[in-house]
């Protein structure tokens, strides 16, 4: 079995994996269960993570393809006990109901904002076009991403994890 070395949310993991193992299954076996499998058909984006800084659908990457790479998941978003501005904005704007799509939405949104810190509503919708939500109707998700973008361009304030709404 191939040996792989992957850094997930800043921690290095050396493992032997079956070549057929999907990255999303590998992450979940490492205990990083914040990344769910949604459709298993490469369509929904629930499994989105960043691989060397770029969004990928982790159900559509083999773990061996991630050898040597840096993976960021939703579990690494909050820092020092404080939510990322995207997480706070999703909370504040009610950008989730069941929450199944949320990890992928957050990762896709963070990829979009590092590329384009000041997107229009249309650009947010395009940036999230690979992520499906069956609950919200998207309006609050788009509003939350625009909110977070404004906040990140400005003060960069963070809300304590579990902390209140604005």
């Amino acid at each position: 079995m191939p040996d792989i070395r992957v850094t997930v949310d800043g921690v290095r993991y050396d493992d032997q994996v079956e070549a057929r193992r999907l990255l999303v299954h590998h992450l979940r076996r490492l205990g990083k269960v914040g990344t769910p499998v949604g459709c298993d058909t490469s369509n929904c984006g629930a499994c989105t993570v960043l691989m060397d800084g770029a969004s990928v659908k982790s159900c559509t990457v083999l773990a061996v393809q991630a050898d040597g790479s840096r993976i960021s998941t939703v579990e690494g978003m909050a820092a020092d006990g404080e939510w990322h501005p995207l997480q706070s904005a999703f909370h504040r704007r009610h950008a989730l109901q069941c929450g199944y799509c949320t990890p992928g939405m957050l990762m896709a949104a963070s990829d979009l904002l590092q590329d384009n810190p000041d997107p229009t509503e249309e650009e947010v919708r395009e940036g999230l076009e690979g992520n499906l939500c069956r609950c919200t109707g998207y309006a609050n998700i788009v509003a939350a991403v625009l909110d977070a973008a404004a906040e990140m361009r400005g003060a960069h304030t963070r809300t304590p994890v579990g902390g209140g709404t604005a």
Partner: peptide
């Protein structure tokens, strides 16, 4: 083609 994540790979 597809969406940003698919276009990255």
């Amino acid at each position: 083609v597809a969406d940003p994540a698919v276009r990255h790979r």
